[in-house]
């Protein structure tokens, strides 16, 4: 056995794993990413619910998740939008009669905005990911 080449193979593996963990993060980063994904899904679900409930109506100044009818209420949420709103992580903002914005604080804004299902979101203040929607009016 060529010990130098065998050691080189081992070194390549160690460098790959070390660099991978350094660049992408370990279990802690992964847990934070999952939390971020849940929050972004909550934003999407809430935006869909608002679009459903206020499709042609004028948007309210403030909104609560409980105020939706059954037909528009988001169902399979992993993280309740109302919990996020109560914790100050998720905010709704009425921009005009038929335009609104929902922002959510995330751990890693860059990675959130790079991920395909949330690519229509933009960077908001204080590391928040924001989704802006226009209603038909």
């Amino acid at each position: 056995m060529n010990r130098v080449l065998f050691a080189l193979m081992g070194l390549i593996g160690v460098v790959a794993v070390g660099t991978g963990l350094f660049v992408f993060g370990g279990p802690g980063t992964a847990r934070a990413e999952r939390e971020d994904q849940d929050r972004l899904m909550a934003v999407n679900d809430l935006a869909r619910a608002i679009s459903c409930a206020y499709d042609t109506a004028v948007l309210p100044e403030a909104i609560g998740v409980t105020s939706f009818s059954d037909a528009c209420r988001p169902t399979n949420l992993r993280v309740s939008a109302s919990q996020l709103m109560a914790g100050g992580l998720l905010t709704y903002r009425r921009l005009s009669d038929h335009r609104f914005q929902i922002c959510v604080i995330v751990h890693d804004l860059g990675r959130s905005l790079n991920s395909a299902p949330y690519s229509d979101m933009t960077a908001g203040p204080e590391g928040a990911a924001c989704l802006t929607r226009d209603m038909q009016g």
Partner: peptide, 18 residues
């Protein structure tokens, strides 16, 4: 542009496999 969730997950799967 930086990694997305899919890439990060793929990377951790590869690390586990290695």
């Amino acid at each position: 542009d930086g990694a997305n969730y899919w890439q990060a997950r793929e990377a951790r799967n590869s690390i586990a496999a290695i």
